[in-house]
Design a protein around this nucleic acid. Sequence first.
RNA 1: UAGGGCGUAGCCAAGCGGAAAGGCAGCGGCCUUUGGAGCCGCCAUUCGGAGGUUCGAAUCCUCCCGCCCUAACCA
Length: 565
Amino acid sequence: MENTATDFIRDIVREDLRLGKNDGKVQTRWPPEPNGYIHVGHAKGFLLAYEIAQEFGGTFNLRFDDTNPAKEEQEFVDGIIEDMRWLGVDWRSVFFASDYFEQLYEWAELLIEAGKAYVCDLSPEEVSAYRGTAIEKDGQVITLPGKDSPYRNRSPEENLSLFRRMRAGEFPDGARTLRAKIDMAHPNLNMRDPVMYRILRATHHRQGDAWCIYPTYDWAHGQSDAIEGVTHSTCDLGFENHRPLYDWFLDQLPIRTRPRQIEYGRLNLTHTVTSKRWLRQLVEGGHVSGWDDPRMPTLRGMRRRGYTPEGIRAFVRATGVTKSQGIVDAALLEHFQRQDLNRTSPRVMAVLDPVRLVVTNYPEGEVEWLDAVNNPEDPSAGTRKVPFSRVLFIEREDFLLDPPSKFFRLAPGREVRLRYAYFVRCVDVVQDAHGEIIEIRCTYDPATRGGDAPDGRKVKATLHWVSAAHAVDLEARLYDDLFTNDDPTEVAAGQTWLDNLNPSSLVVACGKGEPSLRDARPAERFQFERKGYFCLDPDSSADRVVVNRTVGLRDTWAKSQATPG
RNA sequence: UAGGGCGUAGCCAAGCGGAAAGGCAGCGGCCUUUGGAGCCGCCAUUCGGAGGUUCGAAUCCUCCCGCCCUAACCA
């Protein structure tokens, strides 16, 4: 794979290698919690870890961070694996933090025996108060120094006994915790005797009811990295101030390898949200059709929309790896999608807003099968036959009764080319009682068959079209930004972030497509000439063709119309 | 408030003491049987601000300003 990318994390890996750390090995991992489906932001995370392992001849593993049975489900582990595979990522092994519960438990006893952990009977509110959690005072937020828990000085023997009874299920949920004995005055709140175990009776998706105490993230994460032999443990900036704790735990344990946590800024995209909490609300609130709604930034949403794995990877790569927190313009994602789709998508003609065009001097009942190029970017894609006949459909917006000067398309008396077919000249227009155009009447020049005029005359426009008698009906789902503003988390006074939803993020059009579309398979991608990239939706059936617009073509004409002047 | 981070063009982002890469967006033009694609050109006298060190600073030092994160028995 061609990837000369470099960034501060790769610099660290390179330097560690140069210094001979970790016996010259590189091992990375990606540790999702199986509590939802993954999105582009996650893709940045695992692509980074995966590609680093590849570039440095190392190992990449997938590990599910399943330490909270209350939120996790098998459905999501399956979904995450499926989505990662689709993006083209693979791994040496799939691990589960829950497989380390016994080891973690033993290590916890080790800490207790060393006087480094204790069982605490404080309630969550009390823990928070003793910790010196920030409070508001005189309009100012202040942080108080922490106070020792009254249970902090229990003997190792008593702690061990209590901890074993916790595991044995002798106490109710939430009654006690095991806490690390670090420093209640530490400026980093994470170091003020963090909780290592909580009592929680919930059925774990893999462990069933084997446990009623569960390790917290902090007590499980670094240890899992160490057990697996991870050398470089990447995560997002949100975990920066957990690093001292990550290191502290590792310092107490008899481990053979020493993982290093490195944080990077997460990927945010304009006009969408990338937070499982918000995405879940969109799904559960019915604002989208599901986790795979084509407007969702989830990998399955993007897949259904027709985005290509290559395009997504190129996009993620282009955004770089830094510690700054930015919002990347969604136009960059679209750019990489168009770039990939342009060279790979077969072209097809489809009309999204059809209006009848009758070629008055073309023989009734006659059909010609004309040659059309499948992909001008790829000669090996070959050609296909497209039927031409007397009655056609063209795009309603390609005709104007009274065109402005810059409008090159069809108008009364004007001649244009029908792609791969003939030059036609508009000779008449039929309107209904409301002035709505119901039929455009043209004559064609038989000498221009294929689209070239032997006399060398030029036309200013080439239109796409379909033969009415041969057309397949299309339900075209046209997507726009899910949210109207760049950053949907910015909420106007008196509103919620849901008020930022774009009411026209989905528009359904009833179109007409060339007959080859009848044989399309779900997920198959096309370029509808002059309109955009589309793919077949799984909602399609034998008598219904449903397509999703992945992304439109760049349209400088529409743009110039949108901003007159 | 404390602790941890971050500030280079509209958006990402290189740069690490010798004198502002690149991509996206935008704007012109060429070309075109997709107003697509492609091609060419333009787009930061300046790097959050102010001082200082230096022959020389986006890069080093000092102070200031702004923004973000954390303060769950979530991850």
